[in-house]
Amino acid sequence: MRTNESLANVTAIFKRELFGYFGSAVAYVFIVIFLLLLGFFTFYISNFFELGQADLRAFFQWHPWVFMFLIPAVAMRLWAEERRMGTIELILTFPVTVWEAILGKFLAAWIFVGTALALTFPMVITVSYLGNPDLGATLCAYIGSFLMAGAFLSVGSMTSAITRSQVVSFIVAIVICLFFILAGYPPVIRMLSGWAPVWLVNIVSNSSFLTHFLSIERGVLDLRDLFYYLSVIAFMLFVNGVIIQNRRT
């Protein structure tokens, strides 16, 4: 009984939030910038055409960096806006649990980012036209990218709950995301392995979005990577909930 009700509540909040995204100009600006940036990095920085390889590595390797800047921008309104407008008082006095509200909002943002990601399909068409890429590996990389986007979003959703200022939420989210990326960034790992014990290096690099994304990107969808992203999301959303329970006004 309660399950149906929960589902209905999550759906209602999900729909409202998704319409909120597509009803505002910001959504389209986001999608355009996302596609332009990815295109620019892939073709001009990685020199996609000169590589002479029919795969999408040059394209996917930029995802973590583009996500780092753009996803906090998607997530920053989730709770900060509710606080600023005072509508948080309505949503928390509706017969809806905090978890239903968080999940509904998060899923809407995730689907929105997923849509932007799906709109990069011309890349796949280009590569297929030029050669014979491994489509299974490409699909795998897309799934990995989508999961990573979810992890970035959950960080953004959490920071958005801290403050009524979207700017603060944006900046804090970028800083946290940067840590999650840098922990697996090869130069950082190299520097760390100079003096730190191996187990510490492993813990640090395994806590990074980048490490797990790289392994999925190679075309191996390991359950451990899947589990990693889902547990990051679960943890961040849990913290998100705790923040909202304890700081309401």
Binding site: R16, M85, T87, F94
Partner: peptide
């Protein structure tokens, strides 16, 4: 407080779903 980006109808529809 109300959601400024929604129409009156959409807003009440949301509340009715909740």
């Amino acid at each position: 407080p109300v959601y400024p980006d929604m129409t009156v109808r959409a807003y009440l529809d949301f509340c009715a779903q909740i």
